[in-house]
Design a protein around this nucleic acid. Structure first.
Ligand SMILES: [Mn+2]
Ligand SMILES: [Mn+2]
Ligand SMILES: [Zn+2]
Ligand SMILES: [Zn+2]
Lengths: 142, 142
DNA sequence: TTATAAATAAAAACCTTTTTCATTTACGGA
DNA sequence: TCCGTAAATGAAAAAGGTTTTTATTTATAA
């Protein structure tokens, strides 16, 4: 894991502010996905003044830069996770404790049973969704 | 496609109100996923009084009953779709026009290229996420 | 050290979704 | 068919997460 967050921020053309560095440190340590509110709570222990909008903005910027990843949760709120894996992969998320297991495979049904046996987890549902731009919309979009 | 929506509602122990029937009719015709607001706009053409909360409530009930399906959209708002397929399957969604293609396969990477070639769509991203309850949380949950 | 653009705090605004509650409606049983 | 009752609805307000606005502060390149 790369811990030169100053460098990380420079590469995104973002100023290396103490608060940004702290957000990266906080995120990198967590084996769970977190809400902006979660991050804010931790930030408040480190800084006497830290606004929630600052946390929202920074998390959004870091996600746009690909440093952290947005996590889809059934509650449709914002969550982020600092992935260790850099190649294409997916996640098992626990919607109760927010713990994440990073997965290397991509097909689903076939391995559900084996996955449950190996990890002791109970799979409640899975999401597979392909997002894109249909034929009609390609005329004038991405 | 089953169009006996009166029967559909009875099976869910829901009263067959004109508004519920209209919502089902509206949903069943659409090849796109829709927001509660979208449905409300159509309902307003059919009823002089129709509250947005009624639309939200009914869509939620229908989704709980498995009649319609929640669609995950990157904007994290509520969307629903009336699936034609009844077995386990997934969707290609166009985030521009909300058109949906119902898919029969489950693995992803392998077929992206073929899918794009066949349909003329451009896949921008895909979501695979397994939701569940981890080993630790199973002690006291689902 | 200084100039400048970028980042921030605080407050308010925003917007989707949910709740509350009084009124109306569907419908099973008389 | 008529009633009684639980369910459904409309209107209004509230909730709650997220974003915008603006004045001030800060990082950093020159
Ligand atoms: Mn990951
Ligand atoms: Mn479908
Ligand atoms: Zn499209
Ligand atoms: Zn868990």
């Amino acid at each position: 894991m790369d811990t030169n967050y100053f460098q990380t921020l420079k590469e995104l053309n973002l100023k290396a502010t103490p608060k940004r560095l702290a957000i990266l440190e906080i995120m990198a340590l967590k084996p769970v996905y977190v809400s902006p509110e979660d991050v804010w709570q931790e930030m408040r222990m480190r800084f006497k003044t830290i606004g929630l909008p600052t946390v929202y903005r920074n998390l959004d910027e870091l996600a746009s830069g690909g440093v952290i990843t947005k996590i889809i949760n059934p509650d449709r709120q914002l969550y982020y996770f600092f992935c260790q894996k850099k190649h294409h992969h997916h996640h098992f998320i626990c919607v109760f404790c927010h713990r994440i297991e990073e997965l290397d495979f991509c097909a689903i049904r076939e391995m559900e049973t084996e996955f449950e046996r190996k990890t002791g987890s109970k799979i409640l549902s899975h999401i597979i969704q392909i997002n894109g731009c249909c034929k009609k919309c390609r005329k004038g979009n991405p």
